[in-house]
Design a protein around this nucleic acid. Structure first.
Length: 260
DNA sequence: GAGAGTACCTCAGGACCCAG
DNA sequence: CTGGGTCCTGAGGTACTCTC
């Protein structure tokens, strides 16, 4: 591994606010072993490079390219300083944040008013939009990172992006009730800018919404909790995009046999 | 040539220390 | 207490040498 690459690895890790332990766990190796990689004392395997690229939302190529400047940018710093919450910084390329926002507005415009689509269901729809896209096209759509929480996959950057969108009056947060539960809902306050999405991406989102947006909370929960990327990770872990390639037939959205 | 013995290398991970 | 850095030991693999 070129010297620049492990420098870059350390830089990426620090920029993304991961500890060595977290990345070592992601790779399934001990922390000292991970450190050897960062110091260039141990070669990195292809599967490890793929995993790291996925964690940092980079293609394998751009991860392996000796370009010191990380392609993720820290943006949307919170205006409220020195609060615990503002410690969670959004680490996503600007273009992807824009895309994430437009996809969110698009989804909310289409299905946000449905009574079953509260915050948790919304998280799950975004998760399937991102992960299904990765399975189909081997490219990241928004590149958002999702963490395994007890009630479902949660996009790490979601909260900060929503706050930013609320400030800009692009979105409105409302509380309603769904059966006996209090439900958090988001209403779009502007139309999505479809220019930032390709026809292929829109078609993909439409397909996911058609397939999943009518499922009730329990059905959606069962469906997502049986998805391999969800199943193979421990609670609190970042769900690796690569794991979509191990999906079972029920969840797979790619016809691998046609490609043989 | 085949099998046994040995040396060397890489890797993993526990244990320890230090700094904040 | 947590995260980062280092040392040390053992396991596993490979290449080389020796003996039959």
């Amino acid at each position: 591994m070129a010297k620049e690459l492990y420098k870059k690895l350390k830089l990426l890790r620090e920029q993304n606010q991961f500890s060595q332990k977290q990345l070592a766990d992601e790779l399934g190796i001990s922390r000292p072993t991970y450190m050897q990689i960062e110091k260039g004392e141990r070669e990195i395997t292809i599967s490890e490079a793929k995993k790291l690229a996925s964690i940092f939302s980079l293609s394998l190529e751009s991860f392996l390219t000796n370009n010191i400047s990380a392609s993720r940018e820290v943006i949307l710093e919170s205006g409220i300083k020195s609060k615990k919450q503002s410690d969670i910084r959004i680490v996503m390329p600007r273009a992807n944040v824009k895309k994430f926002k437009e996809i969110l507005l698009y989804v909310l415009n289409k299905v946000g008013a449905k009574p079953n689509i509260g915050e948790t269901a919304l998280y799950k729809l975004l998760y399937f939009i991102d992960f299904d896209f990765y399975e189909k096209f081997e490219e990241q759509l928004t590149g958002a990172r999702y963490i395994k929480n007890h009630y479902g996959p949660t996009p790490i950057e979601f909260k900060k992006i929503i706050e930013n969108m609320e400030e800009k009056k692009e979105i409105e947060r409302v509380k309603s009730s769904y059966f006996q539960y209090e439900q958090k809902k988001y209403l779009p306050r502007r139309e999505p800018d479809l220019k930032s999405l390709s026809a292929q991406e829109i078609k993909h989102i439409d397909e996911v919404l058609a397939r999943l947006s009518d499922k009730n909370a329990n059905e959606l929960s069962d469906y997502s909790h049986n998805d391999i990327p969800w199943k193979v990770h421990k609670s609190g872990e970042i769900i690796s995009y690569e794991s979509v390639f191990y999906r079972d037939q029920e969840h797979s959205v790619r016809n691998y046999e046609d490609e043989l």
